[in-house]
Computed example of a mutant assay.
Amino acid sequence: MTTATVLSPEELLKVQEWRYATKQFDRDRKVPADLWSALEKSLVLSPSSFGLQPWKFLVIQDPALRAKLKAASWGQGQIEDASHLVVFLAKETLTEADVDHYVARVAEVRHQAPESLAAYRGMMVGTLVTGPRAATVDAWAARQAYIALGNFMTSAALLGVDTCPMEGLDAAQYDQILGLAGTGYHTIVACPAGYRSTGDKYAELAKVRFPEAELVDHR
């Protein structure tokens, strides 16, 4: 495996300073297909607890569907104006069948016998299906979706693509509009992606963050 391209510390921080929650997207500017393909792959490559990937990512391009989702998003224009819209879903429950599906995939990709993963399978089932986290596994899955969201936003910024994480939405309405009943998944958060409008006044505002000394503690 080749080593990853390494940014300098200055380059990394420059990208982080450039990124902001875009309030107004340029409707006429679209993310090129090769960049978007890479961003979809970055979603798939996102890390998750145990590697279980309790999520789905809906890329919404249909204008009529986006119009309905905008109405369920407090009327925020980013839903329609951005080049792409990703809705992050998380599993409502986790079953032994879900764990077995993942174990089978591990065995396939790493050329292992599924039986060799019995102890790992037992740990996952004992923790998330029958164990102490089973009662709150929906909250656990939602946290995993936010890990993917953060990875997606950072990946987009590194490619010069703007994003806006959006919790300002009615998740139940999203579920209904997207036909999620009976799928085992529900809406967590949305993230439009594209390119900022030259008229977005927020693009040039200084970032407001507490001092590093107030937020980072060394022990």
Rank of each mutant, 00 (worst) to 15 (best):
V87K: 05
V86I: 14
L85W: 10
T95K: 08
R121N: 10
A104V: 11
D98E: 10
A97G: 13
A118W: 03
A82Y: 08
H111W: 01
V103M: 10
S116T: 14
A82Q: 03
L85P: 01
M124C: 04
M124A: 15
R105I: 13
D81P: 02
A97S: 14
E92C: 03
A90S: 15
T95F: 05
H84I: 00
G122M: 12
P114M: 04
M124V: 15
H101T: 15
E80F: 03
V109G: 01
I79C: 00
T95W: 12
L94E: 06
T127H: 06
I79D: 07
R105F: 13
T93C: 01
A113V: 02
R121F: 13
M124P: 08
A113D: 10
V125Y: 09
L117S: 05
G126K: 06
T127V: 10
L85Q: 11
A90K: 12
M124L: 12
A104K: 13
Y102V: 07
V125S: 04
R110A: 09
M123F: 14
A113Y: 00
A107I: 13
V86Y: 01
S83C: 04
A107V: 14
V87W: 11
F88R: 09
V125L: 05
V109L: 10
D81L: 08
A82L: 05
S83T: 07
F88P: 14
L117A: 05
A90V: 11
T127A: 10
E108I: 05
T95I: 15
A113N: 03
S83H: 02
A113M: 01
A104G: 15
V99C: 02
V103I: 15
V125H: 06
L94Q: 07
Y120D: 07
H101G: 04
I79Q: 04
T127W: 09
V87N: 05
T95N: 11
P114F: 06
L94P: 00
L85C: 07
E96G: 13
K91P: 11
L89N: 03
K91G: 11
R105L: 14
K91I: 14
L89D: 09
P114Y: 07
V109W: 03
S83E: 06
E96D: 12
E108G: 02
A113R: 02
A97H: 13
A97C: 08
E80A: 03
Q112M: 08
A104D: 15
V86R: 00
A90G: 10
E115Y: 01
F88I: 07
A119H: 08
A90H: 15
V86A: 09
E96Q: 13
D100Y: 02
D81A: 13
D81Y: 08
G126P: 05
A104L: 11
G126Y: 08
Q112W: 03
L94D: 02
H84M: 07
A113G: 00
L117G: 04
V106H: 04
E108A: 12
I79V: 15
F88S: 10
V109S: 02
T127M: 11
V109P: 00
V103H: 02
V86Q: 01
R105S: 12
G122R: 05
A107M: 07
Y120Q: 09
